[in-house]
Write a protein that binds this DNA or RNA. Structure first.
Length: 786
DNA sequence: ACCCAGTCTTACTGCCCGGT
DNA sequence: ACCGGGCAGTAAGACTGGGT
């Protein structure tokens, strides 16, 4: 066919994948003409991309043509790049280049580059020296790129080795000093990256600040070159890709499975929580080292500052990692692998060094190493753990220092500045700085508490305005601090088991969640989260037919439940309740239902009844039930957690969504009702707190019976037995609840009145409602529930 | 001066999760 | 239910050391 129609076909390789473009002869000749032009453009663009940090000339400089040197520079630059191109962070560089050429008092017959190629060693020497004189230090890569670009014109590419030779020569002469600087790798904590820095001969000691400057410069250099490369790739894609044909760049990997497996092994997603746990572990490790004594142990308390000659302690990260318990590793680094006896190893508190090599290699794969390195990187940016200074070494001298990292013992935190400052403080507002001496575990804890407190609850403050917010963005992300998944292996397994047991049908009543949380010493939110996850997983498995699901669920039933199903109790109940359903209200009035019918069938009944009577009719009794359920949850969850898990609530008078809307209407339309409900939440909340405290002290006494006072014990015990925190029959609570219900009734009557004559009065009444709302906000309702 | 293989980093992208 | 931000894995270019 190609021959028949005189077609031309050409292979194109965008994204490393061959595509073939077929041309008619006419179009092909047009295209060829076009490519010639494009090639030309591409060439000049190529040159544009070379306009790196070292060829910057500010437009201001260019406007003053007085200097001969600058003229020369202009001539050189003009071939390659648009004038006035500007790249951040390297303004000095442009100054340096201008200066450099200005000081080059070349004879006039040598000014034009084309007359005399400047790639000679001489010329190179002079350029390097001038650059150094001005800037004190340069990175070798920067220097290379710059010189390369300048010498490119001669059709030859200056080799790296040529530059190395030149630099060595200069160093021998004593005009410069070449050092290697190490920087931590982002993706591999165990290794550092070395890069060359050329210092002016006048630079003496290399201070840590200077090293930081080297590293920053290297980072910026990388970023710049990558940004340029990315832009180039994009442009190429645009030019060559066949329109309409898009090739997927990546192979899809089913990530959720992997993540789920990691979570199942105890992985905690929140980065800062992981960083915290990691740092606490590292601190404890360093604390156990013999050289700890030199820093703290052998001095009198309170005299740390004097004795603390060193602000940090050296340690080997690899050795520390070997001492990390497997359980902690799975929490903070994570692994999707299931190795033999993993749970047993966790339970026994085995460290990574204690597990078989094969398994060790299995869990510490490349990805795990990457995740771990990211954590080290965060600690590095927080200035808690840094790469050992010994890594900074002179060229040619290599050291195999065993201590790879250093633990900072005197970290600090700056409080972020408010975004809006009162005018009076505008000029003399000072940063608040917290300094820590990590001599005791309590101080480490306090460091992390302060950090979380400063940045997570900073509100309107600008996290970028202070350290470490400015260098670690994660520190102010809410999600990084989410501690929902923090639990021990024991707790996790037990929780999984409980949830499996209770929620065979995929739904766990809220009451049970609260109970499980209490028994496992977890927060209700933690239990709810796992419950939700399981629920959604059950919904998401399309491969399971409902029959399979039932079988699966059935197989996990306890004998008691099987028996109950076998004798048909639930079926009978279901039948009876459905038959009797005049309204959903009636169904739920039957007391047995709550206890006996499993959740799923109750919802089935409710759903059915709802379908029949489209709208749920709210009565005083159903409102009462709704309120009780709502208030109970809010009291348990606390003020910070306001999202009510309607789907998990067990004793609702109507389907969860209906309840949700009803509650929203009640709270929104009338401020008085809202105020009264919140008062009630507070009352019950206080009672719940009291209850928890009693529980705790009871537990403590059971653990340490000798400590407790016998008489106190008796009174508390009896107290505890009769203390039913969510008893709505308690006069105080009862009257408050009745008050709410009365308010709802009044509102109903008001509404009826309003609906009657639809006229201007209606609008007035609405206004009244808003007035009420405003008033209610002024009520001393609560500090939390508003 | 150029090539090659290995390593490292960043931009990109799809998915997840929390908030509304 | 939807939206947007954040996270982590991936692709691919840049760099490096060794070699011709």
């Amino acid at each position: 066919m190609l021959k028949k129609f005189n077609l031309t076909w050409e292979a194109e390789v965008p994204d490393k994948t061959s595509q073939y473009r077929i041309w008619t002869s006419k179009n092909f000749s047009l295209y060829k003409a076009g490519t010639a032009l494009q090639n030309f453009e591409a060439l000049s663009e190529d040159c544009d991309d070379c306009s790196d940090l070292w060829s910057l000339v500010s437009s201001k400089d260019l406007e003053s043509p007085s200097s001969q040197g600058k003229l020369l520079l202009l001539e050189e630059e003009n071939h390659d790049k648009p004038i006035g191109h500007h790249i951040q962070n390297n303004r000095d560089a442009s100054a340096a280049v201008s200066q450099l050429v200005e000081e080059d008092k070349l004879p006039s017959n040598q000014r034009r580059r084309r007359c005399r190629p400047l790639s000679s060693d001489d010329q190179r020497h002079r350029r390097i020296l001038h650059m150094l004189k001005k800037k004190k230090f340069v990175l070798k890569v920067e220097l290379h790129k710059w010189l390369e670009r300048l010498e490119k014109k001669d059709g030859k590419i200056m080799d790296r080795k040529t530059l190395t030779r030149t630099l060595n020569k200069l160093q021998q002469e004593g005009s410069c000093k070449c050092i290697k600087v190490s920087a931590p790798l982002v993706t591999n904590y165990a290794r550092s990256r070395l890069f060359d820095v050329i210092l002016h001969s006048s630079v003496g000691d290399v201070s840590p600040e200077l090293v930081e400057q080297f590293r920053t410069r290297q980072r910026n250099f990388d970023t710049e070159s990558r940004a340029g490369a990315a832009a180039k790739v994009k442009q190429n894609q645009h030019m060559t890709a066949i329109p309409g044909l898009r090739i997927s760049r990546r192979v899809k990997v089913y990530k959720p499975l992997l993540l789920e497996a990691m979570y199942a092994n105890g992985f905690i997603g929140a980065k800062m929580i992981r960083a915290k746990l990691f740092h606490k572990f590292l601190w404890a490790y360093v604390n156990s080292l013999p050289n700890w004594c030199n820093a703290f142990g052998c001095t009198k308390a309170g005299h740390y500052d004097k004795s603390l000659n060193q602000s940090c302690l050296l340690f080997s990260m690899e050795a520390a990692m070997k001492e990390m318990p497997l359980e902690l590793f799975l929490q903070i680094v994570g692994s999707a692998k299931k190795i033999d006896n993993m749970i047993t190893l966790c339970r026994l508190g085995k460290t990574l060094s204690e597990i078989p090599t094969e398994e060790y290699n299995q869990i510490l794969d490349t990805h795990a190493n990457g995740r771990l390195s990211r954590l080290v990187n965060i600690l590095d940016k927080l200035k808690l753990v840094q790469l050992a200074k010994e890594f900074l070494e002179d060229a040619g001298v290599s050291s195999n220092a065993m201590y790879t990292h250093s633990m900072e013992l005197r970290p600090y935190i700056e409080e972020p500045m408010p975004r809006i400052l009162p005018s009076s403080q505008l000029n003399n507002h000072r940063k608040i700085r917290h300094d820590f001496v990590l001599s005791k575990k309590e101080f480490v804890d306090s460091y992390w508490e302060t950090l979380e407190c400063c940045y997570l609850t900073a509100g309107l403050a600008d996290p970028l305005s202070a350290f470490p917010g400015s260098s670690v963005p994660e520190v102010s992300h809410r999600r990084s601090w989410c501690s929902l998944r923090v639990m021990t292996t024991e707790q996790r397994l037990e929780l999984q088991q409980r949830i499996m047991d209770v929620g065979e049908k995929g739904k766990i009543p809220f009451k049970d969640c609260v109970r499980i949380a209490r028994e496992l010493n977890l927060s209700v939110e933690q239990v709810l989260r796992l419950s939700y996850e399981r629920q959604s997983r059950l919904h998401e498995q399309p491969s399971f037919t409902s029959k399979q699901k039932q079988q699966r669920v059935g197989s996990g039933l306890t004998p008691v439940r099987r028996k109950r199903r076998a004798d048909g109790t639930s079926l009978k109940l279901l039948k009876r309740t459905v038959q009797a359903s005049g309204s959903a209200e009636q169904i739920l009035e039957q007391p047995i239902v709550d206890e006996e019918v499993p959740m799923i069938s109750r919802y089935a009944i409710l759903r059915k009844s709802c379908m029949r009577s489209k709208r749920f009719f709210w009565t005083c009794e159903s409102d009462r039930k709704l309120l009780m359920a709502y208030i109970r949850v809010r009291a348990v969850l606390g003020a910070r957690y306001y999202r009510v898990p309607w789907k998990s609530l067990s004793d609702l008078p109507a389907p969860p969504h209906t309840c949700l809307r009803r509650m929203a209407v009640l709270l929104k339309t009338n401020g008085k009702i809202r105020g009264a409900v919140m008062c009630l939440c507070n009352l019950l909340g206080e009672r719940y707190v009291r209850y928890l405290e009693k529980e705790r002290s009871l537990k403590r006494r059971r653990l340490f019976p000798q400590i407790s006072n016998r008489s106190q014990e008796n009174s508390l015990d009896s107290d505890c037995e009769q203390f039913n925190w969510d008893d709505f029959e308690v006069p105080e609570i009862k009257s408050a609840l009745n008050e709410v219900l009365e308010l709802i009734q009044t509102e109903k009557i008001d509404q009826a009145k309003r609906i009657g004559p639809v006229n201007q009065k209606n609008i007035n009444n609405d206004n009244d409602v808003t007035k009420d709302t405003i008033c209610s906000q002024e009520l001393p309702v609560s500090n939390f529930y508003i």
